[in-house]
Design a protein around this nucleic acid. Structure first.
Lengths: 203, 203
DNA sequence: CCTCAAAACATAGCATTGTTATGTATTGTG
DNA sequence: CACAATACATAACAATGCTATGTTTTGAGG
């Protein structure tokens, strides 16, 4: 009774938008669909307009971020794992700087918050594992500490990606997180090994 | 030999742009000059175009921030002063959320970096005073610690101003900064008084 | 298998945007 | 006082996002 949408078209447009973003080409309605075979109306049937496209691009950004965080394995040292999650967060922002910028630009809405919460969940789980292992003081709220870790990661990523700080500043990530975890009760000596192992935010 | 520009017009346009930003009205060339008596060309003689206007608005944002930080007095407790600077930073972002967002949006350039450095200088001086008072471990790089403080402040301000975190999350500011300063060698017990005094990022 | 309506899709036009081209008015300077 | 450089105003321009209109496809009901 109805003609159905082709999900491949939607995915292709999002992918193309991400590529144009990485190539620093201005993304306009006509430039986006140029050469793709689809007309300008496709963007309205699949996204409802440019706002819808940007929302989908933000979702894509959070999906890529979550995929990257999912690759961090859970080792016997949960605090080191948390630091690794932070480094992976920074590495993702550095690898897709323009996409990361769009993720937190104006237009952030409820649906984006859900995607962001999913990302935050990785940190919450990490804090819970560390707490269960007795590495943090009893009474530490996992969500609270996860949000604080996120704040550090996003602050650093944002300042580097938007320009004020050079890429080298990403090296502050591990010390900042270590300071936070120490204040939550962890013995800084136990984390030293991971730092010496040379966690780098670079890919 | 030449007709001179009136600085008042330039200031008026920047002020009007800031007001429209706070009122969440879309800022377009024609809406900006509507009702001001000046024509659209004024924006080109004074700013060279919309990009120039946005650059001037960013500068205005950094100027307001610097003015707010300048009101923080230097007390006998330099570490508490640093915390107060952080709280003032957050209060400024909360009072002018849209302006703060524009300050760090795409388009950040060299001239903006100079303004940002001026802001950072308040933090560097604060760290230097604390180091001179023996509150931080010897060998602490003032610029490094200032950048780390900025990272925390901006991360929190950015996540609140763009939407992911609620305003209440600004309460994380003091604990995060305290954790950082403690890792730099300060005795957390000496800072407790300032926390108990109830530093609030709210105005 | 046929029908048909609903939705995808294409084309063209519209209002608005930032910018530039052109002309006028003003004013500081020699 | 004269003039030229510059502020300033008006209008036209290309490009943008969007909508109106028409066409084509296709999946469900008989």
């Amino acid at each position: 009774m109805v003609r159905t949408k082709d999900p491949a078209v939607r995915a292709m447009l999002i992918e193309r938008a991400a590529q144009m973003l990485a190539a620093r080409e201005p993304i306009t309605l006509r430039s986006l669909v140029a050469g793709t075979g689809v007309s300008t109306m496709a963007l309205y049937t699949y996204f409802g307009g440019m706002d819808g496209l940007w929302k989908a691009v933000r979702q894509e950004g959070f999906t890529r971020l979550a995929a990257r965080l999912a690759t961090i394995p859970a080792t016997a040292d949960p605090v080191t794992d948390l630091t690794a999650l932070g480094a992976a967060y920074l590495a993702n922002a550095l690898a897709n700087p323009d996409l990361y910028r769009v993720m937190f630009e104006a237009g952030f809405e409820l649906e984006d918050a859900a995607a962001a919460d999913e990302t935050l969940h990785y940190l919450v789980q990490g804090v819970e594992r560390a707490t269960a292992a007795g590495r943090f003081r009893a009474g530490v709220d996992p969500l609270e500490l996860a949000v604080q870790s996120w704040t550090i990661g996003h602050g650093l990523a944002s300042l580097v990606v938007t320009g004020p700080l050079p890429e080298a500043a990403l090296g502050h990530g591990v010390p900042l997180l270590t300071a936070l975890f120490t204040s939550a009760g962890d013995d800084p000596g136990r984390c030293r090994s991971s730092v010496e192992r040379g966690w780098s935010p670079a890919v």
